[in-house]
Design a protein around this nucleic acid. Sequence first.
DNA 1: TATGAATGAGTCTTCATTCAT
DNA 2: CATGAATGAAGACTCATTCAT
Lengths: 210, 210, 210, 210
Amino acid sequence: MPRPLSEKIVASTGGEAEAIREHILDAALRVIQSEGLASASTRAIASEAGIAPGTLYNYFGDRLQLVAQTILRRIHVLSQPTGELELQPGKGSIASNLHIFVKHSSLALDELVPLTASAFSDTDLLNALRSEMMNADNAFNPGKYLQEYLLEERKLGRVSRTTDCAAVASTIISICHDRAFQRFLIGDTRKTEAKLKEIDFIAEAITPRD
Amino acid sequence: MPRPLSEKIVASTGGEAEAIREHILDAALRVIQSEGLASASTRAIASEAGIAPGTLYNYFGDRLQLVAQTILRRIHVLSQPTGELELQPGKGSIASNLHIFVKHSSLALDELVPLTASAFSDTDLLNALRSEMMNADNAFNPGKYLQEYLLEERKLGRVSRTTDCAAVASTIISICHDRAFQRFLIGDTRKTEAKLKEIDFIAEAITPRD
Amino acid sequence: MPRPLSEKIVASTGGEAEAIREHILDAALRVIQSEGLASASTRAIASEAGIAPGTLYNYFGDRLQLVAQTILRRIHVLSQPTGELELQPGKGSIASNLHIFVKHSSLALDELVPLTASAFSDTDLLNALRSEMMNADNAFNPGKYLQEYLLEERKLGRVSRTTDCAAVASTIISICHDRAFQRFLIGDTRKTEAKLKEIDFIAEAITPRD
Amino acid sequence: MPRPLSEKIVASTGGEAEAIREHILDAALRVIQSEGLASASTRAIASEAGIAPGTLYNYFGDRLQLVAQTILRRIHVLSQPTGELELQPGKGSIASNLHIFVKHSSLALDELVPLTASAFSDTDLLNALRSEMMNADNAFNPGKYLQEYLLEERKLGRVSRTTDCAAVASTIISICHDRAFQRFLIGDTRKTEAKLKEIDFIAEAITPRD
DNA sequence: TATGAATGAGTCTTCATTCAT
DNA sequence: CATGAATGAAGACTCATTCAT
C-alpha cells in the first residue's frame, strides 16, 4: 500500500536504482557481519535496509544472488588499495615496511577472510561466487602491489638481486591470510598484532649479502 | 513402529553406542562435505546415516552439538600425523623435502580448511567450536613437526645456523593453509599441485651460505 | 504459492487485520471447545480458520499468545452483561429472581468455567493468563451486579436489613461456578437445571422476619 | 539389559506389582503438580519414578490410563476424611466450626480442584475420568460429612429447625470449591485464608430465632 | 514501483509407544 | 518382568518467495 521508499532512503539514494541496490547490499553486509551468514535471512536484510521484504526482489533475483553480490562487492571494495598505505621504496627498513604492510592488510583481511570463508558453508553460494569471480576484473591485488614494491627495492639494491619477488609477495600474503583466518577462528578481537617473526625471517632472507 | 537399527548398521557398529555415535558423525561429515554445512539438516544427516531423525537425539543434544562434534572430530583426525610422511633429516634436498611436506599436507588441508571455514557462517557453531578447541589437547601440530625437522637439519648444518626454525615452519604452514583455502575457493579439484615457488624461496633462504 | 486469503475470509473480515485476528481467535475457540485445549495445535487452529499455519504468526507471536488471547477474549465477552437479564427489584419474588439469575448465569458459566479450568493444565499458559488478568479492566462482574440488585431489594425492605449483600452475592456466584464446574466434570449436557435448593435456602435466609 | 528394578524401588515396594503401580502413580502426581499436566510426559514420569519408560507399559495400558488413574487416585485419597478434623456438635460456636471446616477443607481442595480442572483440557482424559467416576464408590463426600454435622447441631437445637442441612452443606462446599479455584487461578499461594464473610452469613442464617 | 500478508514446504525437536535383549 | 534405543508422526515455528493492492 505505501508506495514510495521511505524518505530517508530516498534522500540517501536519490531514488536511483543502482544506489538503492547498494543500500541493500550495505544492509546485507551489516547483517552478515553481525549475525553471521546463516542468520542473514531476507527478512533480516530487508529490515536492516528499512524496506519491505518484497522490495528486495525488485533488485535481486533471489536471496542467493543478493548474498553473493553482497560478498563479492565487499571483496571488491576491500581489495582496492586504500591509498592510506604507500610503501616508499628506499625509505625505512625493508623489515619495517613489510611489518607496516602486514599490519595494514590486517584491517581489510580481518573482514575479508571471514566473509569469504562464510561462503564455504553453502555450495550454491560458493558456486555463484566462483563464477562471478571468474568474470571479475582482477583489478587490484595486494600481492601484485607488494611485489611491485619489492621489485623497486630490488632495483635500489635493498633487496637481493636473486630474490623471486613474486614468491616473496605471495608468501607474505599467505601469512596475512592465514593470520586473519586464525584470528577469526579463535575469536581474537585485538585489532593490532605484534610484529611477526615470520616477516622478520623473510626480511632477513631477502636482504642482500655483500 | 520402533525397530532395531538396520542390520547394516548393527553389523558395522556392533550396536555399541560409541560406534553408533561415530557412525552418525561420519554420516554428518559426508553430508557437510557433499552438500555444504548449510544443507546439513538433521533429516539429511539421519537419512545419510540410515536412521530415523529422532534417533539422532539419543546421541546428541541438538543439531548444534552434532555438527560441532562432527567438525571437531574431523579436525582432530586430520590433525593426527599419518605416519605416511617421514621427513628424514639429512636425506634428499631440503627443498624437495619441503615440497613433499607441502604436497602431503595438502591432502589433509584440502579437507580441513574448508571444513573449518564452513563454521564461520554460523555464530553459534563457531562459538561452540571455539570453546571446545580451548579444551582440546593440541596433541599434534604439523607446524611443530615441521619445526623439529628443520631443527634437525640445522643440527646437521643443512640449514643455516641463524634460521628461526619456528618462523620458517609457521610460514610454510601458512602457505599450505592459504593454498588450501584458495583451492577450495576457486573450486580447484586437482589433488596435486605444481612445485611452489614460495617453497623454493624459503628453501633457498635457509640454505647456509658460506 | 502465496495467495490472498480465501474469498470467504476476506468477505467476512473485509481483509482488516483486526477482523482477521478475531476470525483466528474464533477458530481457536471452536477448536478448544470441541477438541479440548490439548488438541488445539497451531495446525488445527489454522485449519479451522481456513488459513495456512504460517499465517498465524502474522497475527500472534506464538501459540501461547494465541491461546491465551483466545481464552482471555472469551472470558471478557462472557463476562459482559448480556442485557437479556434485567433483575427488577421489587418485582417477582426474591427467590424466583435469584433462580432466574442462576439459570441465566449458567449459560455463560457453562462455557466460562471449563475454558478457564483448561488453562490449569499448562503452567505457562496459566501464568500468561494471570498476568493479563492483572491488567484487565474488571469492568463487569456478575457478583457486583447481583449485589446491587440485592441492595435495591434491601432498600425496598424485601431483603432483611441485616443482610450482608456482598456475602450473599458472593455465595450465589460460588454456587453458580461450582455447578458449572460439576456439570462439565460429569459431562452434563442439559442446558437447564432444576431449581436449586441452595438458592431457596439463601432466599429464605435473607427474607426479613417481621 | 538391567533387569531388576532399582534396589531403592524394590525396597520401598517389596517388588509387588500393586505397590509399584502406586509408586508410579505417586511419581506421576508429583510431575503433574510441579510441571502441570501438559508437561507430564511418560518420560518425565518414568524419570521421576526412577524406572525406564518402557516399564510404565507393564503397569498401565497407555499414558492416558496412567494419567487418569493418577488423578482419580488422588481425588479418592483427598476425598477421604483425614480424621484430623472432627467437628463436634454442641461444642464451640457453629460459625467457628464452619470456619474451621472451611479452612481445613482448603488444604485438600487446593490440591483437588486444580488437579481435577487440569483434566478439562483433554477431552479423552476427561471422558476416561468420567467413566471411572461413574464406577467409583462415592464412599466419602465432604458435603455429606458436613451435612451430618449440621443435622446433629439441629438436633441439639443450635441450628434452626427449618434449616435444609443438605442445601447448607452443599452451599458451603461450593464456596470452598470456588475459593480453591480462584486461589489457583490467581496464583494465590497463601495457605490460610481470612474468615469468610460468606460463612458468617450462613452461620447467621441457620441460627435459630427465638 | 513498493508493499507486506499469505503461503506451505521445511526446520528442529519431542514424544508415546514398541520390542529385542 | 525391566530395559532403553529406535521409531516416525506430529508439534511449533521460520523463511524465501509471490502477488494483489
